[in-house]
């Protein structure tokens, strides 16, 4: 691993350590302290007792709310409104339309169809997948032979065939 990649990894760990633990705990202490000070609770309860009580009440409540949050509330909804929940990303656009296929899949497809065009197209798409990987983001596969075969076979009409070509040629 290069030095830069090592440094970047350490940097990510630093940030996660800080944001998920250190600043999180500091924020809780800050809140407890401000509540104790500004609500004049200092006249009734010592600081250490208040902090203990605060954490004893806050942590179980937060744990229960957090559980429901992840399973049913904001965290789940946030997952569903991500832009790529219902949309294909670059990989799925290519993979779904057959511009790239896995090598084992290429063999399966040609065996299943017993068709020369599918064999040749699968082989090209497997080669494209390798180029896609080796290109490290600089090469985007545009192979559209599966669109053509699907059109020739009558699986796609002309309108969807044109859409298929346009997606593979123009989307990045």
């Amino acid at each position: 691993m290069s030095l830069l990649k090592r440094v970047l990894r350490i940097y990510v760990y630093v940030r996660l350590g800080i944001s998920n633990y250190l600043t999180f705990m500091i924020a809780l202490f800050n809140t407890a302290s401000l509540v104790w000070y500004f609500l004049n609770l200092k006249d009734f309860i010592p600081y250490s007792h208040f902090v203990l009580l605060f954490f004893l009440l806050y942590l179980p409540l937060a744990a229960v709310l957090g559980y429901y949050d992840l399973k049913k509330l904001v965290a789940k909804t946030a997952y569903e409104v991500r832009p790529y929940w219902k949309r294909p990303n670059l990989f799925w656009t290519r993979y779904g339309l057959g511009a790239i296929v896995y090598p084992v899949e290429a063999k399966e497809l040609s065996e299943l169809s017993g068709d020369g065009r599918v064999r040749e197209c699968s082989s090209r798409a497997a080669r494209e997948f390798l180029k896609f990987f080796l290109g490290e983001g600089r090469y985007v596969p545009k192979e559209s032979c599966f669109c053509r075969i699907a059109y020739e076979e009558g699986l796609l009409d002309e309108e969807h065939y044109e859409m298929c070509l346009k997606v593979l040629r123009e989307s990045e």
Binding site: G98, L112, S113, V118
Partner: peptide, 16 residues
């Protein structure tokens, strides 16, 4: 939705 290559290969297989 499904993968176009799989749909195409299955279509050809069934047709043949």
């Amino acid at each position: 939705i499904y993968k176009l290559p799989d749909l195409t290969a299955l279509w050809i297989r069934l047709r043949k």
